[in-house]
Design a protein around this nucleic acid. Sequence first.
DNA 1: GTCTATAACTTGATAGAC
DNA 2: GTCTATCAAGTTATAGAC
Lengths: 185, 185
Amino acid sequence: MTSPPSTRDRLLDAFSELLVAAGSRGATLDAVAASAGVSKGGLLYHFGTKDALVDGLLERFRRMAGEDARDMRTAPAGATEYYLRTSVIQQGDPLSRTAVAVLHLAQGGDPRAADAFTAATEEWRTAIEEEVGDRVLSRVVQLVGDGLWAGSSIGVAPDDLDDVVAGVAAVLAAARAPRHAGPPA
Amino acid sequence: MTSPPSTRDRLLDAFSELLVAAGSRGATLDAVAASAGVSKGGLLYHFGTKDALVDGLLERFRRMAGEDARDMRTAPAGATEYYLRTSVIQQGDPLSRTAVAVLHLAQGGDPRAADAFTAATEEWRTAIEEEVGDRVLSRVVQLVGDGLWAGSSIGVAPDDLDDVVAGVAAVLAAARAPRHAGPPA
DNA sequence: GTCTATAACTTGATAGAC
DNA sequence: GTCTATCAAGTTATAGAC
């Protein structure tokens, strides 16, 4: 049974949605409070400062990212495909929304957000490396996912996600079963 | 001989630097004017509104991106390697700085910036496709570059760029020579 | 072409009522 | 736990001097 979200949770939801939609510039306390359906005073009861609101979102992100890294390892389609598909913002997917929100905070110059994002990224890459068995290949897969993300973060939804997923899979298969393609110089 | 930059150019330089360093939140008219060494009134003589300042930067970005797409096609190392290496922000590289500045504007919700960025991205991808000869592979290469960018945009400099470039090259070679040996032309 | 002064509005935060 | 009223600082923009 899912109980209705607390005001605190609704405020964090609104904050992340505004960050995704309008960047750190548009995610003001006024806008967050209005979007969550409370007054600014109501917001400031739960989060005394804007920094506290950021901390609340980062804490939620760390928890969700940790759970996601576990999900990757048990995903039926495999960690790589799971990662690429969840790198595109899905309507209503809480993790990808939260991750892009944190990315925007990091790009706004917040070092706590940059640290949290870097740490999560390394967790995900590790899960990919366990599957593909090679560090550099895991980096390439991850960078493809990050690229999908960067597009999502400006509202560009790829129209060829299936092609990309299939292309990466084909490329990984080719790289792991080398015939005589010749090593790079 | 390079003539000293005009006040107009110095203002656009300062605007893009501030966008990269602090996001759209920190790039205020006050900060831009101070960073360029003029008063706010001086700034507003050249760009009557903040929107005009954004337009000036987007115009500069479109010009630089067009020149870069031409440079890619004649790069000695090839378009792919050129693109990946220039996807990492270099200290003092005007294009990568400008591109990240535009990315931040797009993430702040400016549709003109998102359009300009999308158009440039498609130009670059086309140049890559001309080299690798396959649309999906060109997308994969480009997404790796975008991923490097996303990292750069939050101040994370990759410590394994050479590995990634070599890894992509190896993976492309494997994908393009699945049946027999032979270096690409 | 650049400056100072200032107006109009927004933003983050406080105080206190209910 | 939530609201309204209020404030100081910051932000965009205008007006006019030099």
